[in-house]
Design a protein around this nucleic acid. Structure first.
Lengths: 251, 251
DNA sequence: GACCTTTGTATGGTCAGACCAAGAGCTGGA
DNA sequence: TCCAGCTCTTGGTCTGACCATACAAAGGTC
């Protein structure tokens, strides 16, 4: 797991200098991937695990920290059933946070982010058109209705727009795709918010266009027309970014 | 500093119990967001920072670990210009690791993972067909040639297959999509390896089919036919998983 | 006996101080 | 001039101690 696999050129492998805490992480990952540890299970107390692995408690703690930061572990003091260090149900939150950091640090040009959105949301739209439940559609309708409020300020509109796209992804029924979509859309919330404000008077016109787009997308879902839904989502996303040249690099 | 942020006003605030290392992280993030720290910059030595913040060195180290695990920091010993703890350019490695854990925890059913792969790799194929460089294509060709080796064992084939799909994503020129594709394919390496072994005698036939698929994909790229490339990639991925029913839930 | 208070215990949270190990740069001798 | 070896900085690790929290069990009060 510590990225050091083969690479034996000439038989001289540059001694993968593994730090102790990384070895601890590897052991924990082994247990998880191997199925001995599942969501909700407790790990041994830090002191015991340290002794079992033959390392110091500090090393165990550093390993725990690294995993906790990724949302894999959850640490709590006390003696109760929920105490101690347990394997967390990886919420999409950790993934979202990390992806947001990636995009937020402007590691990716906006074009790439848009392409990724298109790819993912097309897939969501297709799935949703084929299998969205009545509840999913009702929820999307509710968001549409709320966005119609003419008094809505731009920040709130942005929130709702994010929620709409996340809802669309969830209606598609694919958790992984939905998580990635969420992460990407979340990472864009700040720059988009800025863009909304920079629009000035053009805002009203563009917002109206977005509302119309959304409505047409939901209509396609309701008709169960996957191709049409895909196409409309793609047009919606591309069209919007084409109108907002000001974002630059997605930071 | 030992967590005594009492806050006993008459109200009922649910005491945001901040752990020391989290406070340290906050300070570091402040510096990064505020621009005082940029990619490549060095942080103070652990001992100094600990003293400056009034916490123990262990607390600083745990904070560093959490950030290092997310790829934000890079730690190295020694005295040179590259030594010490520096702000790292976020690599896709952290993303890969996290996604691998997600899939390893069986948070996502295999179907979802396959759908995500299809969505992302279709996008990559389209981009690659439109803009892959001669070098990209040559690299893919080289992989194809290596996979032709009849002596190749299944593990090595699996490695090469992973490399091929990563190469395809990179040929598409979209870093974000490539990273996500890499992460997903990496997360499947172990289960796929197992599946390859479980195939028994059917292996030869299936491997031959995969080779042919790959070749046809590259051919489509070379012709610049985006639609065809998309279609072939999708068929390749779906067809393969259809033949491998044994994977179950991608753990 | 029911209920509240006190004590106990397991566990993570934090700290202090020590020594090890890697790497760059300086220094002195060949 | 060049190179071996020392030195200093910095992360890596360990030990052992004490604090803070949350639940559990024992004990006291009505």
């Amino acid at each position: 797991m510590t990225g050091s696999e083969i690479d034996e050129r000439g038989g001289w492998r540059p001694v993968a200098r593994a730090r102790t805490y990384e070895l601890v992480i590897d052991r924990i990952e082994e247990q998880i991937v191997g199925g001995q540890l599942g969501v909700g299970d407790r790990l041994p107390p830090e002191r015991e695990l340290a002794q079992m692995l033959g390392v110091s408690r500090a090393a165990v703690r550093e390993a725990f920290r690294a995993l906790e930061a990724q949302g894999v572990l959850r640490m709590a003091v006390g003696t109760g059933p929920d105490s101690g260090t347990t394997v967390a149900a990886l919420t999409s939150q950790a993934l979202t946070r990390l992806l947001r950091l990636h995009v937020g640090l402007a590691n990716f040009p906006l074009r790439d982010v848009v392409e990724a959105r298109v790819a993912l949301e097309r897939a969501s739209a297709r799935s949703a058109a084929q299998g969205a439940s009545a509840e999913d559609l009702a929820e999307l309708d509710a968001m549409l209705a709320e966005m119609d409020d003419p008094e809505l300020d731009r920040d709130r509109f942005n929130e709702l727009d994010t929620a709409f796209h996340v809802g669309l992804a969830e209606a598609g029924g694919n958790r992984l795709v939905a998580d990635m979509t969420t992460a990407i859309r979340e990472s864009l919330r700040r720059p988009l918010r800025q863009a909304f404000h920079d629009l000035g008077d053009a805002w009203e016109v563009i917002a109206a266009g977005l509302r119309e787009d959304h409505r047409r997308i939901v209509a396609a879902l309701r008709e169960g027309d996957a191709d049409l839904a895909e196409q409309r989502v793609e047009e919606h996303i591309r069209g919007f970014y084409a109108k907002i040249p000001g974002i630059g690099s997605a930071g």
